[in-house]
């Protein structure tokens, strides 16, 4: 598996509070990578370092052997797209307008709206399944529709890399699976997808590469079938469980048992 996006020996901190030290991760190209772990384990922080929202105190993130710190801001935005956990749309914006803003890194100060911009927006809305909603105000949409509109915005950026921070958090179960299926399809079309996910079973089902984190460190990474077992769940989540094959996909499925201390 080839890698173009990689983190080397990162020290990540918010002011005095150090989240991670010596953290390294190679993101496999053209694959769906899921990062899982308990709350506050540093998984979102790692994602923010990959998109340059957080400057590492030490270590480097590089894309194509060039440090992302050296990229121009729009140049990086043409390669790496990011969707934060709970993005906030302006009050009166419509879906098409929101998606159109994804074209920002492709526009210069004086450039007009181009044919390519128009095509990218139309295609992004089709891919994310929001074409029908194009002229609806974003704030009138349901949670699932709104999240798909935001995904369309990032798709309009036309980046080979797509990083998402807990994209399924506020969705009902159907919309969670629909969104993950969409991300898997984007992977099939050649994009590299990295998502922080809450649900370990969904991560096992959809991810090619699973990264399990705890207290700022990567405990295990690899194909879910190779790394997910009761011992890993005990270590990472402190969860007593059995791991059985998912009856639909054969991927590992975590079924919690009882806690020793009631």
């Amino acid at each position: 598996m080839t890698t173009r996006l990689r983190a080397r020996e990162l020290t990540l901190s918010y002011g005095e509070r150090v989240v991670s030290t010596k953290l390294s991760l190679d993101v496999p190209d053209g694959a769906f990578t899921a990062i899982v772990g308990p709350n506050a384990c540093g998984k979102s922080t790692l994602l923010r370092a990959f998109v340059r929202l957080l400057r590492p105190a030490a270590g480097t993130v590089s894309l194509d052997d060039q440090q992302i710190a050296a990229y121009g801001s729009k140049a990086l935005a043409r390669s790496v797209g990011f969707l934060p956990q709970d993005p906030l749309a302006p009050d009166d914006i419509k879906v098409r307008q929101l998606v159109a803003r994804g074209r920002f890194p492709h526009q210069s100060l004086l450039s007009m709206w181009s044919q390519e911009d128009e095509e990218a927006v139309t295609e992004a809305m089709e891919t994310a399944g929001v074409s029908e909603l194009a002229d609806r105000p974003v704030q009138e949409l349901s949670g699932g529709q709104r999240q798909r509109a935001w995904v369309a915005m990032v798709l309009a950026q036309r980046t080979p890399y797509l990083l998402l921070d807990e994209p399924t958090s506020f969705l009902d179960i159907t919309h969670q699976y629909r969104l993950l299926t969409l991300l898997a399809r984007l992977r099939d079309e050649g994009r590299t997808v990295v998502a922080v996910l809450h649900d370990i079973n969904q991560a096992c089902r959809f991810a090619d590469h699973l990264v399990a984190m705890k207290e700022g460190r990567i405990i295990a990474e690899g194909a879910a079938a190779d790394i997910v077992d009761a011992a890993l769940l005990k270590e990472v989540f402190d969860l007593p469980c059995v791991v059985v094959p998912d009856p639909v996909t054969e991927t590992p499925m975590v079924v919690p048992t009882h806690f020793d201390d009631p």
């Binding site: 043409r78 990011f82 993005p87 803003r101």
Partner: peptide, 12 residues
């Protein structure tokens, strides 16, 4: 207007 995180990752 899309918030600091989105704006920055859009290259603003």
């Amino acid at each position: 207007a899309l918030g600091e995180a989105v704006a920055r990752t859009l290259g603003a």
